[in-house]
Amino acid sequence: MKKLLFIIMAIFFAGCKTNINYYQGFIYDMNNKPVKNLKVYEKSDKNNYSITNEKGYFKIPAKNNNINRFLYVEQNDLTIIDSIQVFGSQGGEKIKYNFVEGQKDTLYIKFHSQVDNGESHP
């Protein structure tokens, strides 16, 4: 039984190794405007990060071809304001990847100080 459990765990962890070279995507507010100057980083390595540009775009290299399950989004270098689930599956379905190379995924964030009159105040 222990051997079977070990084999299943080994297969699972081997499956976490990917050929993904980077994470990328856009971050917009709820008024569909890009948000710049947000820090996006891997859960496992806060030093591997990108700052969103004027288009809300970020791009982070994936270290050692290992993919993190989550990216964190930080504002003002202090507060984690959101997270991005990079991969997941439901009910044994095929694993779905988000915010990885070649995909143009977008995260929409509602800021607590944001108003709904067409202006955003991150």
Rank of each mutant, 00 (worst) to 15 (best):
I67M: 09
L38R: 05
N48R: 11
E54R: 03
F87N: 08
N64P: 00
V73P: 02
G56M: 11
N66P: 00
G88W: 07
N64D: 13
K96H: 12
Y49V: 06
G88T: 08
E74V: 06
L78A: 06
N48K: 08
S44Y: 00
L71S: 12
I95V: 15
P34Y: 01
V40F: 08
D45T: 11
G56S: 03
V86I: 15
G56F: 04
N37F: 12
N98D: 10
Q75D: 11
Q75C: 10
E93S: 15
D77G: 07
V35S: 01
K96S: 10
I80L: 02
N98H: 14
N65A: 10
P61F: 11
K94V: 09
K96W: 07
F70L: 12
E42I: 03
V35N: 01
Q75F: 13
D45H: 11
E42S: 13
K96T: 14
L78P: 00
R69V: 01
S89T: 15
V86S: 06
V86A: 02
P34M: 02
T52W: 05
Y49D: 04
L71K: 08
Q85E: 15
N48V: 11
I81Y: 09
T52P: 05
L71P: 05
G91H: 12
K43H: 08
D77C: 06
N37I: 04
L38V: 10
R69F: 07
G92W: 09
V40A: 09
P61I: 09
K39H: 04
N68H: 04
I95L: 15
G92S: 05
Q85D: 11
K59V: 08
T52D: 06
T52M: 04
